[in-house]
């Protein structure tokens, strides 16, 4: 199942998200691998789910990538009415644009980064993440280090990501503690007025939609 997933365009959004599995992990203990196999085989034998259910779930999960978020961002940058709808009520705006069904996914709010106000999202309790539009969270997002530190020393953490914001830019650390998931609408870089929506999509990175980075050319 490694090679059946590709992205037609906007590869920039995936520079940091090579998510195609290549092999079994060598750092998973044999005990964990055995337990996974035992559970899977028994639950399939008992018809709790089928091998096909598992396959379809994996395909659905793998179909959700940061490119979806990037499409939403590019549209919001180029269509003020769309942006207003997105910020007011994200789910229907995203469903209509992308043609995907978010009925069974958690609630979603899009927060807008501006030259005066920068949002960065996290989940200090587990790994809540806007999977519907960004896919599976990166390992560092789920790490104890990010979860522990981003709420206590956000500017230092952003600096570790190479993100230096002027002191007068308000930082809003958004801890996703309950039913709501958050995605960041990054600040649009300057001098991009001539770019097409497709070209804009290619500029937008996953990390800018988490808020740990800003896009090249962002002006504060």
């Amino acid at each position: 199942m490694s090679g059946d997933h590709h992205h037609p365009h906007g590869d920039k959004a995936h520079d940091h998200d090579s998510h195609a599995p290549v092999s079994e992990a060598h750092d998973i203990s044999s005990e964990s691998a055995l337990l996974e196999r035992a559970l899977r085989e028994l639950l399939i034998e008992k018809n709790i789910f089928t091998a096909g259910d598992l396959r379809r779930q994996i395909e659905l999960t793998e179909s959700r990538t940061p490119e979806l978020g990037a499409k939403v961002v590019a549209r919001a940058w180029t269509d003020a009415q769309y942006k207003a709808r997105l910020l007011a009520d994200a789910k229907p705006a995203i469903e209509n644009l992308l043609g995907i069904d978010l009925n069974l996914t958690p609630e979603l709010t899009v927060v807008e980064n501006t030259a005066a106000r920068h949002h960065v999202i996290c989940c200090t309790l587990c790994s809540c993440y806007p999977r519907a539009v960004l896919g599976i969270p990166p390992a560092w997002y789920k790490s104890p280090e990010y979860r522990a530190r981003v709420v206590r020393e956000p500017r230092e953490v952003l600096a570790e990501f190479g993100t230096q914001l002027p002191d007068d830019v308000e930082i809003r650390v958004v801890d996703s503690t309950a039913d709501m998931r958050y995605m960041v609408l990054p600040l649009r870089p300057r001098d991009t007025g001539h770019l097409s929506e497709q070209e804009l999509i290619a500029l937008i990175t996953r990390d800018s939609m988490i808020g740990v980075s800003v896009l090249a050319g962002s002006q504060y």
Binding site: P154, R155, D168, R172, T177, M180
Partner: peptide
């Protein structure tokens, strides 16, 4: 946190 860190706000859903 008992100390200032520039203009910084934390939000959480409670």
């Amino acid at each position: 946190w008992g100390k200032a860190a520039g203009a910084t706000v934390i939000t959480a859903d409670i």
